[in-house]
């Protein structure tokens, strides 16, 4: 029996498992991506677009799946899982590179002199304790002089010379000096970066200047009254007060006052709310506290809430 015909027909139905192209496809299994770098075949592209796209996509997927099957697998309840390697494709940065930080004064100096930076260990060896201790910080070695049980006293020292205090002050002074230098570096950096910061809009800036000028003009001993006037200087204008006419219709004045009153009631004044809190809900109609006292016969709201049972029970026990 000759099965070669059947086999040939079957092979024709099944497309090739291996894909062969002029330029081999680039596969990045980490991203599950296949890139086809071959130029588009114009003839078949124009003849039947759908079929051409389908065939290119199929080739790509075939290559990807073939590469997936060559990966090491782990078994799981849902079947074998392929372990993806790290992606090889280099993606572009999302954000621009950070600007270089402005150099500190020391860094500038070191660069000019060609001084190399030496990394100091954070820990140093303590001979007495026979262990590594922090150079600074909690139980740091820089506090050793303050902690030692015996300390040297200079020959010309005062009676109240405190070696530990002197050492501590010196250490604190070093910290303070460092902090000061850090602040100065920050200020210098801000000055260098300064012009890049957007200035306020013109109208805002004009108002600020006017305000500053008005303040400085009244900031003299005579509140600006006896100062020498500059040429073309205008008189300072204050706020013009405006009052209601003395004679208003009684009706309008009344409604105006009542409106203010109602506004006052709504405003939760801190003291007022505290006062009204105990008699919450108890307007002038009902004094809640008094009512509670009357109904509970002076035993309070707790006794009332327990429903008189508790009171009776207590009596029964006694």
């Amino acid at each position: 029996m000759d099965v070669s015909d059947i086999l040939a027909a079957h092979a024709a139905k099944q497309k090739a498992v291996t894909v062969e192209k002029e330029i081999p496809l680039e596969v990045d299994t980490g991203f599950l991506t296949v890139t086809d770098l071959n130029p588009v075949d114009t003839e078949s592209y124009e003849a039947n677009l759908e079929e051409y796209l389908m065939s290119t996509a199929r080739d790509g997927v075939q290559t990807l799946i073939a590469s997936l099957f060559s990966l090491p697998t782990t078994s799981s309840p849902d079947g074998p899982l392929a372990q993806l390697p790290a992606p090889t494709t280099q993606l572009p940065r999302a954000k621009p590179l950070p600007k270089p930080k402005p150099m500190t004064k020391w860094e500038k100096f070191a660069k000019a002199k060609g001084i190399q930076k030496k990394r100091r260990d954070k820990k140093i060896w303590d001979e007495e304790k026979q262990e590594w201790v922090d150079r600074w910080g909690w139980k740091g070695a820089n506090k050793a002089k303050e902690k030692q049980w015996l300390s040297e006293v200079p020959a010309n020292a005062d009676l109240d010379y405190d070696a530990a205090k002197v050492a501590r002050d010196a250490r604190k002074a070093r910290v303070a000096k460092n902090e000061k230098q850090r602040q100065q570096n920050l200020a210098r950096a801000a000055q260098e970066m300064g012009p890049s910061a957007a200035p306020p809009p013109v109208d805002v800036r004009k108002k600020q200047i006017d305000r500053t000028l008005a303040v400085t003009r009244t900031s003299t001993a005579s509140m600006g009254k006896f100062d020498r006037k500059l040429e073309g200087e205008k008189k300072l204008k204050g706020m013009k007060r405006k009052f209601e006419p003395t004679e208003m219709s009684a009706e309008s004045e009344k409604s105006h006052n009542l409106a203010i009153l109602s506004k006052l009631d709504k405003e939760p004044v801190a003291k007022k709310s505290k006062k009204s809190a105990p008699s919450s809900g108890g307007s002038d109609v009902l004094n809640v506290r008094k009512a509670i006292r009357a109904t509970s016969k002076g035993k309070g709201s707790a006794a009332l809430a327990s429903g008189g049972k508790g009171v009776k029970g207590k009596k029964g026990k006694r």
Binding site: F243, E244, P245, T246, M248, E253, N257, I260
Partner: peptide, 8 residues
């Protein structure tokens, strides 16, 4: 004069 709102 009548009182202003703050004064009232």
């Amino acid at each position: 004069r009548p009182l202003t709102e703050e004064e009232s």
